[in-house]
Design a protein around this nucleic acid. Structure first.
Length: 433
DNA sequence: TCTGGGGTCCTTCGACTC
DNA sequence: TCTGGAGTCGAAGGACCC
């Protein structure tokens, strides 16, 4: 437990700034709950011999292969290891670390247990990734007490029932609650009274702000902006002229303005699979096999979700790390691997001339209702559908590797079904902070 | 030197239509 | 018939998030 868990638990709500900085609920009733070093913490919980050791979760678990860090235990972070860092760099910084592969299905199961706990405190839960969620507890105070007491109770329930620690931010807006939860990790609790948003954000470095990544940070530093307060001091019109609509949003966020409510996540807009080769390849047969495996993975998830794709896209990254994409609308929306594979091969072919391929990706977009097919085509479609549904059923019962296309048994292709079998389209990726 | 995988959203640009 | 402007839409790429 952090020795000083709240920033200002007894501070009165401050006045609303004259610039109208406060928006949304009049009181701080939004919680952002973020599990600490989630994947690494699950591994240390389940394998006591790892407790106290630097643990790095990422890629296939080997520090000598291509991949980046998905999660690092706090022991590993002391060596400078952090998420998104290449595994080889992590191994150089911390050669004694235990490197483990990402076990998406297991983490997803733990995540569901945590989300079930959150749902006991309010029905208004917005899960934004595998390890974090927003809650609006405005209607829960009669049962559970003030927001801060709810945050304490949630942290205790996660610790006692799941065996993990979580950090919680409490504020009047999602934006500020999220920044707050990140401020005193691990096991932190930071409360920002309504009205204090701009003052709370002002001294923090600009990269703490949602929407500011590396490119924007550099651009803002050219503008003389280093802290969120520096950004808030710039007239919004000047930011809009320099950064367009993005600049106008940044100006609002720097003042703590975020009108977005805690809401149900929207339906997915795309489903995709990617694969990075251990060694860049120009082998057409390997590329075609990989596209087939990726198409199978995408199609399987489409069928599981009851979706059909109207558009197929491919992504090709070359040895120089330059990425090209091509997409095409299909004549008929589909959830079958063959038409997705066919389209992805045709889209990729012109991109492959004269390059060695580092990464291939296949995506499905523009989900649509199936069109009415001519009678003959409908019969053929129905036959194919019955066949793939039978295969899906066998894989569900006996495991994802129970049936595989002969062409995919030649090795060297991504295994499309090793991820969380319950993963829903639209769920965020597999890195956690 | 090295840089995964799975997403969303925004901007820009060219093709097309009126 | 030709030309140009405005609006729309899809494709491509980039930035960002976890």
């Amino acid at each position: 437990m952090h020795p000083d868990p709240t920033l200002s638990d007894a501070a009165p709500s401050g006045p609303i700034p004259r610039d109208g900085a406060r928006r949304g609920p009049a009181r701080a009733t939004i919680l952002h709950v973020d599990l600490d070093a989630f994947f690494a913490a699950v591994e240390q919980r389940d394998r006591p011999e790892l407790r106290g050791l630097p643990v790095v979760v990422g890629g296939g678990g080997g520090a000598d292969r291509r991949g980046v860090v998905s999660a690092a235990s706090y022991e590993a972070r002391r060596f400078g290891v952090h998420s998104a860092m290449p595994l080889r760099t992590a191994a150089a910084l911390c050669p004694d670390a235990v490197f483990l592969p990402v076990d998406g299905a297991r983490y997803a199961a733990v995540s569901r247990q945590v989300m079930a706990i959150l749902g006991r405190f309010t029905p208004r839960v917005e899960q934004i990734s595998i390890d974090e969620a927003f809650l609006d507890v405005a209607g829960s105070e009669a049962l559970f007490g003030p927001p801060e007491a709810i945050a304490v109770a949630i942290k205790a329930a996660i610790r006692e029932e799941i065996g993990l620690t979580a950090s919680v931010g409490v504020a009047a807006t999602k934006l500020v609650a999220k920044v707050a939860s990140d401020l005193r990790k691990p096991d932190g609790l930071v409360v920002v009274p309504a009205g204090d948003e701009a003052a709370f954000l002002a001294p923090l470095p600009i990269v703490r702000l949602w929407g500011v990544g590396e490119k924007t940070r550099v651009a803002l530093e050219d503008f003389g902006v280093r802290t969120i307060g520096d950004l808030a001091a710039i007239p919004p019109d000047a930011l809009r002229r320099r950064f367009g609509e993005h600049g106008a949003q940044l100006a609002d966020r720097a003042r703590g303005i975020d009108p977005s409510p805690v809401a149900e996540p929207q339906d997915a807009r795309s489903v995709s699979h990617e694969h990075t080769f251990d060694v860049d390849t120009g082998d057409r047969e390997e590329i075609e096999r990989t596209l087939l495996a990726l198409s199978e993975g995408v199609a399987t998830r489409l069928r599981a979700a009851g979706l059909r794709a109207g558009t197929v896209a491919v992504k090709v990254r070359d040895s120089a790390f330059v990425t090209h994409t091509r997409q095409r609308a299909l004549a008929e929306p589909t959830d079958l691997a063959d038409p997705i594979w066919q389209a992805s091969r045709e889209l990729a072919r012109p991109l492959l001339r004269g390059i060695r391929v580092r990464l291939l990706g296949v995506a499905a977009r523009n989900f649509a209702e199936p069109a009415q097919l001519p009678l003959f085509a409908a019969d053929e479609d129905e036959r194919q559908r019955r066949a793939v549904e039978a295969v899906d059923a066998i894989r569900r019962r006996f495991g994802p590797k129970a049936m595989t296309r002969a062409r995919l048994m030649e090795g060297g292709v991504p295994e499309p079904f090793e991820r969380d079998p319950d993963r829903k389209p639209g769920a965020r990726g597999i890195r956690e902070e």
